Simulated scan of single mutants.
Amino acid sequence: MKKLTAIIILITGILMISVLNFAQVREVFELNIKDASVDTKVINKDNKFIEANLKIPVLIISNKQMQSAINKKIESDIIEFYNKSFKEAQSYFNDFPEQENQFAISSDFEVKKNTDKVFSILIKYYIYSGGAHGIYEYVPYNIDLTSGKVFILKDIFKENSKYQEVINEEIRKQIRDLNVKNNLPEDSTQLYSFNGIKEAEKFYLEDDKIVVFFNLYDIAPYVAGIPEFSIGRDVVENIMSPNYVDTIFSTPITNKLSYR
């Protein structure tokens, strides 16, 4: 009888611990999903001039006012891309009515960093209007989730920090390495022709890196794709605004992100 009672107590204890642990896991999961998750809105259009497949990210966060503003901005930009492409296609086919192939466009997205302080996402645009290949472009949105601000590169650095010079030197160093890797002289401009970044150069955040990237043909031929250069924390931390150091280099919450 004593043995049976002991077994019952043991099983009861195990069940209670399991229930408590499950409740904690569920609470953490729900909090993470509440903080930031991503849904997908799909818009398909097919008409005389253009075929479009638009995937639009829908950010879901606890601050609904911020959520609405961010989602409205991103969706508006994607719809503007469609409207501009439609007008170009319409104009083209009005000038060349004998052409039969439609323009084809699409938008997609990739979340690069998702923490409780910052959200970094790439919108990936593609348009094909004939010829050997289409054109694609990536547009980043780096969002401070504490304020709702979409910040650009110059925002994250101290005034008079000469951040452009620092980043330029790091990119040139990486280009020299790439040239050597491709059996070219270090100072060759055959593959990359880089003259320096702009104040609002495109970038996204990933882990403890700032990844600066360029459009097709900006600094390299089409075959090079979208050139990307990772700028490590050790390169820029001492010239960054203190407010952004903690925001940008905070640890990603990888289990927070959900796609639906």
Rank of each mutant, 00 (worst) to 15 (best):
K2W: 04
K2G: 03
A6T: 08
I8R: 00
L10I: 00
I11H: 00
I11M: 00
I17E: 02
V19K: 00
V19W: 00
V19L: 02
E27V: 06
V28R: 00
L31T: 04
L31I: 04
I33E: 01
I33L: 03
A36N: 09
S37K: 11
S37E: 10
S37G: 11
T40V: 09
T40H: 01
K41Y: 10
I43W: 11
D46I: 01
N47D: 11
K48Y: 14
F49V: 02
L54P: 00
K55V: 02
I56G: 11
V58F: 08
L59G: 07
N63S: 06
Q65T: 13
S68T: 04
I70L: 13
K73D: 06
E75A: 01
I78C: 09
I79H: 11
E88L: 09
E88P: 04
S91H: 04
S91C: 02
P97W: 11
E98D: 01
N101Q: 04
N101L: 09
Q102K: 15
I105W: 10
I105K: 10
S106Y: 01
S107K: 02
S107G: 06
V111W: 02
V111L: 03
K112F: 00
K113D: 02
T115G: 07
V118I: 13
I123H: 12
Y125G: 08
Y126G: 00
I127G: 10
S129K: 15
S129V: 11
A132D: 06
G134L: 08
E137M: 08
Y138E: 15
Y138R: 13
P140C: 06
Y141F: 09
N142C: 14
I143V: 02
S147C: 06
G148E: 15
K149R: 05
F151K: 04
F151S: 03
L153I: 08
L153K: 07
K154H: 01
F157M: 12
E159Y: 09
K162C: 14
Y163S: 09
Q164A: 12
Q164I: 13
E165K: 14
I171A: 06
R172F: 14
D177F: 05
L178P: 15
V180C: 12
N182L: 10
L184S: 03
L184W: 05
P185T: 07
P185K: 07
P185S: 11
D187Q: 13
D187A: 10
T189Y: 09
Q190G: 03
Q190T: 15
L191R: 10
F194R: 04
F194M: 09
N195F: 06
K198A: 03
K202S: 15
L205P: 15
D207A: 06
D207H: 07
D208Q: 07
K209A: 08
I210S: 08
V212T: 06
F213T: 04
A220E: 05
G225H: 07
E228C: 10
E228Y: 05
S230K: 12
I231V: 13
I231G: 08
I231T: 13
G232M: 15
V236F: 07
V236R: 06
I239L: 12
S241R: 15
N243F: 14
V245P: 06
D246S: 14
D246G: 11
I248K: 01
I248A: 01
S250G: 12
P252T: 12
N255F: 11
N255D: 12
Y259W: 07
R260S: 11
